[in-house]
Design a protein around this nucleic acid. Structure first.
Lengths: 218, 218
DNA sequence: AAAAAACTTGACTGCTTGGTCAAATATGGA
DNA sequence: TCCATATTTGACCAAGCAGTCAAGTTTTTT
């Protein structure tokens, strides 16, 4: 017999299995994030992982299985900084920290951001349930925190949901649209200080935009 | 003979040709914007346009031809409000207007925004040249304007490029990520006042974020 | 009312690609 | 060492899809 693949009946994976699944996941992240789900091919992923397509399919039942695995592996890490926003911290400082970390992640691992962007733009066929349950719960939790900050006068009165969307939009823009950013800024994006420049500009606008105001807000 | 298609040697199109090309373009916009270039199929576009695939291919040589046509038709309209930013207007007011219009467009025609997002995330194989030439020229022009506003003390000192990116990111987010926005806000997105609510939140943050400040900017 | 030109379509072709199969080959424990 | 099991792969299959062809059907022109 050949293909009774994947996980012995107990949960343990062999050394080779662990290694290869990791190789495949990394290759798949690269390919899915640039080509999208439909644009990606198993051949390309397998090639990038240094093995035959058949072997890849020994470790993952289907293309969708690979895709789902990659998404699940990435999602927690991606969400961590958001979950880490501290209700008891200083509001402006917490948000400053969150924006900074998100910007750094977008610069370091644009693949993750692109992967999610792609999935959501397809209508989130796979992440839909996650969005409506876990993410929504987390967002609801944080909107409550933000609202309490506003009520305490430590933040300008902005609808918390939209504030979160704005932060996501701006921070992920530099990952998802890097092609456009590169095209418009030329070589500037590769110079050493670029990340700091982005951070400075974004933080300057966002933090001044949410600072508590006495009255007559725009 | 059957297929000496497309445009008589003079440039004029027949009534049927005009109608059908428009039908196809609209259908193609819908399909490309949700499924992406690779995800879209000519069969689906043809079906949506109410004709056979063969007939669609009578009006457009290839799939890429359809795609390019749709992009070109959409791009000018999409860019107009940016081009309309008036160097002689009041800076805050000009930017307020621009953000408002972009938000309205994202709400009215999310397809256009999604189409471009998709194209750029693929690495802009088709729009690349446009980005590096025409769009770059336009952006350079507007950054100069913004810089002059800053020098005149009418705007906080923000790198103009990043300011533009931020505005694009935020305004297009509501189109590109509508699936996520819907999932997180539930039915709220369909209620009458929703657009105004978005506008208020975004404008409140952005405009206060770029208002001239005396010193010690965040 | 013909004839020409424009339009429309079903059947078909060739290629890509997700997934299967059966036959090796490597690995690890007794 | 020898065997059972895990790993790996080339050959193959079927579906999906862009694009062609030749045979109509409709519209326009004269």
């Amino acid at each position: 017999m050949a293909s009774q693949p994947l996980r012995k009946t107990n949960g343990k994976m062999s050394r080779i299995q662990t290694e290869n699944r990791a190789l495949i996941a990394q290759a798949a992240l690269d390919v899915f994030s640039t080509d999208g789900y439909r644009g990606a091919t198993l051949d390309r992923i397998a090639e990038r992982a240094g093995m035959s397509k058949t072997n890849l399919l020994y470790y993952f039942r289907t293309k969708e299985d690979v895709y789902a695995t990659v998404i699940e592996q990435t999602i927690e890490e991606w969400l961590q900084p958001f979950a880490d926003i501290d209700p008891h911290g200083d509001p402006i400082e917490e948000i400053r920290k969150y924006i900074s970390i998100k910007l750094a992640m977008s610069a370091d691992k644009p693949e993750a951001s692109k992967l999610f962007a792609n999935e959501i733009q397809r209508g989130a066929p796979l992440m839909g349930k996650f969005l409506r349950t876990r993410l929504k719960a987390l967002v609801d939790e944080k909107t409550t925190v933000i609202r309490s900050w506003i009520d305490a006068g430590k933040l300008a009165p902005i609808d918390p949901h939209h504030l979160i969307f704005m932060i996501w939009a701006v921070t992920q823009h530099y990952a998802d649209f890097d092609t456009q950013v590169d095209a418009l800024l030329g070589s500037a994006t590769k110079k050493p200080g670029f990340q700091e420049q982005v951070g400075q500009a974004v933080l300057s606008v966002m933090l001044n935009g949410i600072k508590p105001r006495d009255r007559a807000g725009g």
